Amino acid sequence: MSSDGFSGTIFRGRRRGVLIALSSPSGAGKTTLSKRLLSQNPDVVLSISCTTRKPRPGEINGQDYDFISVEEFKKRIDDGYFFEWAEVFGRYYGTPKTPVMEAIDEGRDVIFDIDWQGAQIIADQAPEDTVRIFILPPSLALLEDRLRKRGQDSDEVIRDRMNRAKDEISHWDEYDYVIVNDDFARALEKLNQALHAERLKRNRHPWLGEFVDALMEQ
C-alpha cells in the first residue's frame, strides 16, 4: 500500500454522454457558440440535422446539415428515422435517432442547435440524458440589427423572425441553464461551465455503483 493510503489503480469506467439542447432566437449567437464549444471539446459532437431548406453561404452538406428534399424528409418520418422533427417557416428540420444514441453510449456529448419545441421533445424522450441551455440576446434591438446585417432575409422575413424570437424567448424558463450573450467570451465560458457541471453528475457515471461496492469490501 502506498504512503497515501491507496493501493493499486483506481478504475474509472466510461462516462455516459450528455445531450445538450441549445436554443435561442435566430441571431442570438447559439450557432457561433456551439461551433466554438465543439472546437474546444473533442468529446462533443454536433448532431447533424436534416433539413429541406436551401444551404446558406458557406454551409456544407453533411457537415452543417443534411440537405434533402421534402419528399425524402417525409419518407424518413414514416420510417421512424427521426429523434424529433418540426416544421419551421415552411421548412422541415429533424434529428436522426441512431447516431445520437450511439454517441452518448460511447461517452460523447451531442449538441443540438434546436428550437424550444425540439428541445422539449428531446428532453421528454431522454430526460436523464438531456440538459437544456437557452441563449438570450442582450436586447431585441440588437437581435434585429444582427439579422439585418446578415443580408440574407427580406424585411418581411425579418419581421416574422422577430415575432418568432419573442415566442422562443417566452419559453426561457423551461431550460436548465440560461445565458445572456452580451459578451461572446463570457457566454462561451458559461456554456463550458454548464457542460462540465453536467458531466460530473452521478447519473452520467454508471460505473460508480460497482466501484463503491468494491470500495466497501476493502
Rank of each mutant, 00 (worst) to 15 (best):
G27F: 06
W116Q: 13
E59Y: 04
D176N: 15
M162Q: 02
S3T: 13
V212Y: 11
V131K: 06
D160M: 08
D4P: 07
M1A: 13
E106V: 01
R148F: 00
S139T: 14
L191G: 06
K201M: 12
P137H: 04
A141V: 15
N181C: 03
W85K: 00
W172I: 11
S47Y: 00
L19A: 06
I179F: 03
R159C: 03
N181L: 00
S26L: 04
V18T: 15
L191A: 06
P57V: 01
I20S: 00
P42W: 00
V131Q: 09
V45H: 05
D173S: 10
D167N: 07
S69F: 03
G94M: 03
R150E: 11
R202K: 11
H171F: 11
I104D: 01
A28T: 06
K190R: 13
R16E: 14
V131S: 09
K35N: 12
R91F: 13
E72K: 12
A141L: 12
R16H: 14
Q193P: 03
G209T: 12
L143K: 04
A187G: 09
V180Q: 06
P127M: 01
S39W: 05
M216S: 10
D79M: 04
K75A: 11
A103E: 10
H171S: 03
N41Q: 08
A21I: 11
E174D: 15
R36G: 07
G90L: 06
S49V: 13
A187I: 03
T52H: 10
E59T: 07
S170L: 03
I114W: 02
F134L: 05
R150N: 07
D176G: 12
N163E: 14
G17C: 07
M101L: 15
W116C: 14
H196V: 12
I135E: 00
K54Y: 13
E144T: 11
I10W: 03
R164M: 00
T9Y: 02
G80P: 05
P206L: 01
A194R: 05
L136F: 01
P127T: 05
E87M: 13
P137Y: 01
D109W: 04
A194E: 01
D167E: 13
G62Q: 06
R53C: 10
S139D: 11
V70E: 14
E210A: 12
G29P: 09
V110R: 00
M101P: 01
S3D: 14
A187S: 09
G27H: 09
K190Y: 09
I158H: 07
G62V: 07
L208T: 12
I114L: 02
D105E: 15
M216R: 12
Q152L: 15
R204C: 04
I48S: 02
Y92S: 12
P138A: 05
T95Q: 06
E217T: 08
L200G: 14
I60R: 14
A165M: 01
I135M: 05
P138V: 06
I10M: 13
K30M: 07
T31R: 10
I169A: 06
A185D: 15
I135S: 03
R36E: 15
S23K: 00
Q63A: 12
P206I: 08
D105S: 12
D113T: 11
S24Q: 01
R36Y: 05
N61S: 15
N181G: 07
D66N: 14
I104K: 06
L143I: 10
P57R: 02
D173L: 00
E128S: 14
I114V: 10
E217W: 04
L208R: 09
R56Y: 13
I104W: 01
T98G: 01
A103D: 00
D124M: 10
